[in-house]
Design a binder for these strands. Structure first.
Length: 361
DNA sequence: TAGGCCATCTGGTCCT
DNA sequence: AGGACCAGATGGCCTA
């Protein structure tokens, strides 16, 4: 099953790596405005516009040239740079910038700029494709580049954990893995994509961890060797509304646990990242209420991955983590981003159905 | 208004 | 020489 999953995903990954993903309408939407009004035809214009303005200022007096041969001859004999009182410079003699040479340099620079632009567009296109295959995708609330990479890293890590452990992880660990190192807005978005109220299920878990199956989680069997730099940051101020994956999830002093199969720290793990990430901004975006109702709380205890199978019918936008038949949208909608255009990428990634089945009991 | 994110230009370095 | 890649600088846009 999982082998089929990866056999399905692998070509896409390869296409991603090659940057050869066929753009669809969604990617068109995700183009930046600059890219949008910068069609292929206009690229040259803008390129000329942008670089020429600068080049023109640099090359004052750069009139249309000229006789290259003549210039070359001049350059060959151009040893007059050190003709003054100044000490001779070492190294290759700097050729005199003749108008012809300046023109060639300008053209070369313009071509280099165009190539660089194309290269960056390709890179952005690949990033757009990556945005579509990570577990959260929104046309309007596009993940930033860095957040996309972080989420992708976490996603790969989570899938690897599933393969290593051969069983489905608990929802808490899964979401925590996905959100590790992500900014608060992105955490909200991911939680929203998974239709989770992150604050609720985490705080409740803190209140009564025994009601979750976290201790038996494949992710929680070992001490977490890769403290999240954000959550461990001194800048972090755990608030009532914030998502505190450390203390809220497992209680004070309990580190979230996402070990590899073994017990020894694996610093090659994607969870290990140099502590360069900015601190999480716990601005209460996850929660507007000090405490939720028991109804809301109880809902979280019955969360399962089963809802992810709604990916088969994305138009319904049903909430995936509720008890069968439960409607959860209104109760939690204030804590999660607007989802009319937010969905898991699995809506369009059939292989994830296998994963859903895997999560299913 | 500050900060985050982004696109673009640019010069340097390495490789072919 | 030219292309690919990279990182720094810069300015624009957006949001809190």
């Amino acid at each position: 099953m999982l082998s089929r999953l990866f056999s399905d995903v692998l070509p896409d990954v390869q296409r991603l790596a090659a940057g050869g993903w066929v753009e669809d309408s969604a990617s068109e939407d995700s183009k930046t405005k600059d890219e949008c009004h910068l069609g292929e035809d206009e690229m040259d214009d803008s390129e000329t516009r942008a670089s020429s303005s600068r080049a023109d200022s640099e090359m004052a007096g750069d009139d249309d040239d000229d006789d290259d041969d003549l210039d070359e001859e001049e350059e060959e004999g151009g040893g007059d740079e050190n003709s003054g009182d100044k000490p001779k410079k070492r190294g290759p003699k700097k050729r005199q910038m003749t108008p012809a040479r300046a023109e060639r340099s300008k053209v070369r620079r313009q071509k280099a700029n165009a190539r660089e632009r194309t290269r960056m567009h390709d890179l952005n296109s690949a990033l757009d494709n990556l945005r579509k295959v990570v577990p959260c995708y929104s046309k309007t609330q596009k993940l930033s580049k860095i957040e996309t990479l972080r989420l992708a890293k976490n996603y790969i890590w989570a899938l690897g954990e599933i393969l290593r452990n051969g069983k489905r992880p608990d929802v808490v660990s899964y979401v925590q893995t996905l959100c590790k190192g992500l900014s608060q807005p992105t955490t909200n978005l991911v939680a929203g994509c998974l239709q989770l109220n992150t604050r609720n299920f985490l705080t409740e878990q803190c209140t009564d961890p025994s009601r979750f199956h976290v201790p038996s989680s494949p992710f929680s069997a070992h001490p977490y060797p890769y403290p999240c730099s954000r959550l461990a940051s001194p800048h972090y101020q755990g608030g009532s509304g914030g998502l505190n994956l450390r203390s809220h999830a497992y209680g004070p002093g309990y580190e979230a646990v996402y070990p590899p199969g073994g017990g020894s720290p694996d610093y090659s793990s994607p969870d290990y990242e140099a502590p360069h990430s900015p601190p999480v901004c716990h601005n209460g975006a996850l929660s507007n209420r000090p405490q939720d109702s028991d109804t809301d709380r109880n809902y979280h205890y019955s969360m399962h991955y089963s809802g992810l199978t709604t990916a088969r019918a994305p138009a319904t936008h049903s909430l995936p983590f509720g008890p069968p038949g439960a409607r959860l949208g209104g109760a939690h909608s204030e804590n999660i981003p607007p989802f009319h255009d937010v969905h898991t990428h699995h809506d369009r990634a059939p292989p994830y159905e296998d994963l859903n089945a895997f999560f299913h009991n």
